[in-house]
Design a protein around this nucleic acid. Structure first.
Length: 466
RNA sequence: UCCAGCUUAGCUCAGUCGGUAGAGCAGGCGGCUGUUAACCGCCGGGUCGCUGGUUCAAGUCCAGCAGCUGGAGCCA
């Protein structure tokens, strides 16, 4: 008999009186002395668990079924019937309950049928996917990931698998993890006593990538519309609810495009993702609204219906100064926007997502395109109510002489960017792109306060146990 | 990394003025019931984060360390 997903049964896609097999894990067991037990069984296919009714007439009722506790795995053969109880439309009347795996000591099984703190669940990261909350996060995470690929595929983009290992130590986005096969107890040395990386696996220093952007630009200037979606690594000692040492990032890059095109792409992309979650995961979103963040559904519905406001950095500074608000960080032309400023702009001034464009060149990266005023670059940040910056992007500098001048200005080694400069020497075109932190997007959607709870196995300083 | 707070049973927490430890859930036993985080009764369960100090006496006061949480910085 073919096993059926609990989601299909609860959505009533399976006719009643049909014979089915269900496989999953026990959440709770309730006994009735009328001669039956109620088993709440989940299999991850949807938020709700299935109620299995096991009669005392089953041969293993006393020996096994009445010993079932949270976490036990079972295979149930039975019949779908309309439920006489009030909590569910249908339930499974069991003809046979086979125990696949027992919980060896129910008293110390870490996942109990009660509310656990998210901090505690992090300490049992191998078992936490069995909980309501992590199960819901996992399904929403998948829904978003699938929507990312679907959106780009429908728009004619190609997914580029940019490298995880890089030999560029100057990508400029923070501390990097070293990749090496050298024997740390016996390091090869040069004549001058330095570590001799020519002896290392790649014949030079190597690191884990902090961004796929520079690599993806090369494919952009051949395939026109491309994106990366993969893991990214930052070795910074940051201990916050918004940082991970290993996280996933989405970076589209479009050729023959300017900053306006980039902002248009960001807007339609985010709205597509959020619509997908609202349509595909109403069960999980209902749970987040009830238990995690009451406003999460409302926030997404407003987001997908609102046209993004566009505003120049210079105008944003003027608006902040005109607000006469007391900010902890004073506002003047040339400063980077702090989260308090970003929140004011999107939450109070505009009340919708805002794209701030054309920032001072001094506070932005070398590859961003210099504007004609010679003091701003074609950079943009998408600021969303409730979170602040959700996307950062720019039009890239496509003019070799201007790029070289910027590299010199910042004291960067032109040799190290040889292949990146080549892209400007051979058939250069205006192009643009942005970066979206995947986990931060999941946080925004679900209202989960800590980024460590929206990735299966979080890595952060001192933590890589699982 | 900086500032502040927190750490007590398997889990969530209470613990007054310094005087030798409590509840709910979970577990075991019994009762009751087409139950819904079921309910009722009884029972077992503790290196009070770790190390040191003050005191006749420390879960409680002090110091250091670790972890967690919130904020900051950095950013995605």
């Amino acid at each position: 008999m073919k096993a059926i997903s609990i989601s299909d049964i609860l959505a009533q896609r399976i006719p009643t009186d049909g014979s089915v097999t269900v496989r999953g894990w026990i959440r709770t067991r309730r006994d009735s002395k009328a001669g039956l037990s109620f088993l709440s069984v989940h299999d991850g296919s949807c938020f709700e668990a299935l109620q299995v009714v096991a009669s005392s007439s089953l041969s293993n009722y006393a020996t096994e079924i009445q010993r079932l506790s949270a976490g036990c795995s079972v295979i149930v053969h039975g019949t779908i019937v309309a439920s006489p109880g009030s909590g569910q439309a249908v339930e499974l009347r069991a003809n046979e309950v086979k125990v696949a795996g027992w919980v060896e000591d129910p008293e110390t099984y870490p996942m109990q049928p009660k509310r656990h703190s998210l901090e505690y669940l992090r300490e049992v990261a191998h078992l936490r996917p069995r909980t309501n909350v992590i199960g819901a996060v996992t399904r929403v995470r998948h829904c978003l990931a699938a929507a990312v690929h679907r959106f780009f595929h429908e728009q004619g983009f190609y997914w580029i698998h940019t490298p995880i290992i890089t030999t560029s130590d100057a990508e400029g986005a923070g501390q990097m993890f070293r990749v090496s096969t050298l024997d740390f107890a016996n390091l090869p040395r040069t004549d001058s006593g330095e570590v001799d990386f020519q002896e290392d696996f790649f014949g030079r220093q190597a690191f884990l990538t902090v961004s796929g952007q520079l690599n993806v630009e090369s494919y952009c200037l051949a395939l026109s519309k491309v994106y990366t979606f993969g893991p990214t690594f930052r070795a910074e000692d940051s201990n916050t609810s918004r940082h991970l040492a290993e996280f996933w990032m989405i970076e589209p890059e479009i050729a023959f495009a300017n900053l306006q095109d980039d902002a248009d792409l960001a807007e339609s992309f985010l709205k597509y993702l959020f619509r997908a979650v609202l349509q595909e995961r109403p069960d999980d979103m209902k749970f987040f609204a009830e238990r995690i963040d009451a406003s999460c559904i409302d926030r997404l519905e407003k987001f997908v219906d609102a046209a993004f406001e566009r505003m120049d950095y210079t105008d944003a500074i003027t608006q902040l100064q005109k607000s006469h608000r007391k900010f902890d960080f004073p506002v003047s032309w040339g400063v980077d926007l702090q989260s308090e400023h970003e929140r004011y702009l999107s939450e109070e001034l505009v009340g919708r997502p805002v794209v701030v464009m054309n920032y001072p060149k001094a506070i932005k990266a070398f590859y961003m395109r210099l504007n004609d005023d010679d003091r701003t670059v074609a950079a943009m940040d998408v600021l969303a109510p409730g979170i602040g910056e959700i996307i950062g992007g720019s039009q890239r500098e496509e003019r070799l002489d201007v790029l070289d001048a910027r590299l010199d200005e910042l004291g960067l080694d032109k040799q190290a960017y040889g292949w990146y400069r080549d892209l400007r020497r051979y058939g250069s075109v205006p192009h643009a792109g942005f970066g979206l932190g995947f986990e931060r997007t999941i946080q925004y959607v679900t209202g989960m306060a800590n980024i460590r709870d929206v990735i299966p196995f979080p890595r952060y300083p001192g933590h890589a146990e699982y």
